[in-house]
Design a protein around this nucleic acid. Sequence first.
DNA 1: TGAATGATGCGCT
DNA 2: GCGCATCATTCAT
Length: 208
Amino acid sequence: MTRKLSRSFFDRPTLEICPELIGKIIVFKTHDSLFSARIVEVEAYVGQADPACHAARGMTERNQIMFGPPGMAYIYFIYGMYNCLNFVTEADGIAAAILLRGAEPIDGIEAMRQRSKAGHDWQLLNGPGKFCRSFGLTREQNGLDLTGRELYLEQSDQPPPVIERSPRIGIRAGTELIWRFFDPASRAVSRVSDRNKKKKEEKTKEGN
DNA sequence: TGAATGATGCGCT
DNA sequence: GCGCATCATTCAT
């Protein structure tokens, strides 16, 4: 049996793929290490009409991977110190991707613990920046094939979990879109209050 | 327990 | 220059 997800899995509408990703396994192999985890939280960033999508202002050197064929890794550097991993979706020419925000560690936990100072194992991957740090993913892996030998997704033996939706986290525009999907039963879901941002917006308005 | 803030570098206007 | 799909720490209550 083949458990590995093929390119056709990613060659579909992004919002159709998102709920199916929850519960899937992500695997990253290098010459001397193996990491795997169960995906519990993702967000959709779809096309140039989505104001929160990096592709909203057209293709640039940074976001060009999103415009390419599906099933590739789009990894970008943010806030001066973090990387975030996305799965590129939809046909070649359509800029869309799914941000991996949270996962439960399976393999490589010892190495993850060394990279992260998390007190509990469920804190190793509960955030997009933390996921990349613990897995060791950086912009060097940008454009890597998600259906290759080094990095891929696979089916889980477990039944699919109940899935909840919410607005996306950490963005200013496009908050009306309910494009965050997560497994509410998992502790590895990033818990971020969006009240900070509301207050910041109020402050900004007052300043104007 | 929740809100504010500093770290830190790159992409884009 | 400014803002950013973040996180850990500090500060206030």
